[in-house]
């Protein structure tokens, strides 16, 4: 495990190496493309009694697509979906390998215990949870493990739907073809909820966006929670 370079005294710091930033933004682009095109695909045969407004889905303008393809953009949405899946698979694999071999997962997402989660969760509900740049609290840690698991679930359930004959045992694991569709939709909902919270928290601490773009962000330590070390 590589030691984390120490920030100057009086500062807290977050560093994101180039490979991690690249994987992060590639995953972000892929997930957004997959979600918005997935909504258009969902609309062609909804599994719940609702449709997603076409204006917020990816697949082209309905009229333009009808004129072009005689198809309301489902073909284009599928093309987006099956292009972005490669980007997600590649970026996710890069992220996993990086996370394991650089020590990023062990250093930043562990340890995580039910007790620490409960303590931080209660503190967060009372708006008493501090934020220290470059350090994750137990709620964040669980969130990141959760989203890592969710992407794995989306990739596997997606493969099951894409290749239900070639991967028949995987399909039965999801409770059949319809089960895999359901898991894929629910997984998307979880991923979308994560994105909303993730982006909201970034807006609360905009320096984290700076470090994810430029690789490094520093803040002067100015609170009791930040000065624990």
């Amino acid at each position: 495990m590589k030691p984390r370079p120490a920030p100057p005294p009086g500062f807290e710091e977050q560093r994101h190496p180039a490979l991690l930033r690249l994987a992060h933004w590639a995953m972000a682009l892929a997930v957004l493309t997959l979600i918005f095109s997935g909504w258009r695909i969902y609309d062609s045969s909804p599994i719940f009694p609702f449709r997603i407004p076409e204006a917020i889905t990816l697949g082209g303008g309905i009229q333009a697509q009808l004129a072009w393809h005689n198809d309301p953009g489902v073909a284009t949405a599928i093309a987006w979906h099956f292009a972005a899946m490669w980007l997600l698979a590649g970026a996710y694999l890069t992220f996993l390998l990086y996370g394991v071999f650089s020590g990023h997962f062990r250093r930043d997402f562990l340890p995580l215990t039910p007790r620490s989660f409960l303590a931080d969760f209660v503190a967060a509900l009372r708006f008493r949870l501090g934020h220290k740049l470059g350090e994750y609290n137990a709620v964040q840690k669980l969130f990141y493990w959760g989203v890592i698991g969710l992407v794995a679930l989306m990739l596997t359930s997606g493969i099951a739907i894409w290749k239900p004959v070639q991967t028949a045992p995987l399909v039965s694991l999801f409770g059949g073809f319809q089960g895999a569709r359901l898991v894929h939709f629910l997984g998307m909902s979880g991923l979308f909820a994560f994105l909303l919270v993730h982006v909201a928290l970034v807006l609360l601490v905009p320096r984290t966006l700076q470090s994810m773009i430029l690789g490094r962000a520093r803040m002067r330590i100015h609170s009791a929670s930040g000065a624990k070390e």
């Binding site: 918005f36 204006a55 917020i56 990816l58 697949g59 082209g60 303008g61 333009a64 697509q65 072009w68 953009g73 284009t76 987006w80 708006f127 501090g130 934020h131 982006v199 807006l203 609360l204 905009p206 100015h222 609170s223 929670s225 930040g226």
Partner: peptide, 29 residues
């Protein structure tokens, strides 16, 4: 750490997001 909602950043991000969605429709065409 006190938390202040950066409202300007929020609305700017929201408008960029909606803009890219709107143009996203035409982008595919």
């Amino acid at each position: 750490m006190p938390i202040a909602l950066p409202r300007r950043a929020l609305s700017r991000t929201a408008s960029i997001a909606s803009l890219s969605l709107l143009t996203g429709c035409d982008f595919s065409d």
